[in-house]
Amino acid sequence: MIITALIIAISVITLFAVLGLVLVYMERKVAAFMQIRLGPMRVGPWGIAQTLADTVKLISKEDIIPNGADKFLFNLAPLMVTVIATLALAPLPFSDKWIIWDSNVGVFYVAAISSLTVISILTGGWASNNKYSLIGAMRSGAQIVSYELSVGLSLVAMVLLSGSLSFSDIVMTQQDAWWIFKGHLPAWIAFMVFIIASTAELNRNPFDLPEAESELTAGFHTEYSGMKFALFMLSEYINMFIVSAVAATLFLGGWMPLHFGQDNFFNHIMDYIPPLVWFAGKVFFIIFLIMWFRWTFPRLRIDQLLTLEWKYLLPISLINVLAAAWITVTGWHF
């Protein structure tokens, strides 16, 4: 039991490190290509070791705690944000065999854990003793608490359609087709609402008000430097991975290959591609989508942000839940 736990812990930490490196590199390259630049090119061929070099730099940087900061909370916040990101990873099925904790309430668990992020951001912003940080933290509070509702409701719609709270069961229900294909309009709407709302929960552009570098310099992590800043950054990317993994599992079939109907020639060909590749491909597709948003759109203002949630996303997802329920009851999906 202990050995299993150890193996899992080590592999999760390794996954984190690799994900952090890969996603930061990917973000920089995606941004660069959209901005007609080359991006990092110096460290290694095409700059692939750039993030590694940056990590070394961040580790060796001075750790600054500002005067008048609440030392305990200031140090706790980056730790908390990383732990929360780690916890949410547990019930996600990476392939048909790879799943850390096959919980029967996986969807519920992820929704509950990921909404804890706001506490660490509030802690970090408040403990920094900086007005920019505080404004950023308060914005983050308003933002995450409201967008949590839309995320939850779009999850509910999918849970209704698939009839299960367990991620592995949800994947199994998509054996004949992914929910995005067979769920009709409700699945599409839920998918879009989920992507928009979870981008907001990730504090990424166009919803990056807590950071808003042109307004608040760096928002809630203005005062953080060195490895503590790196932890905030890492957890942002891990959260992005988790959100994308949830979206991929619920809407795009998780590790399930592209199937149409039962037992036909097309499905057998698709089965030759290993499930892990399917999963990674879908996750990275959604990550790319979120990055695409970031490098295209301007930032919203705080009142527009809340208008979008309360006047648009929330009513739409409420109606969507009804529609999903109706489809489930009538069995209209195939």
Partner: peptide, 15 residues
Amino acid sequence: GMDLGALTPFFWGFR
């Protein structure tokens, strides 16, 4: 564009 949070126009304008 940059002030409003969209970084991409910055590079296009500079090009």
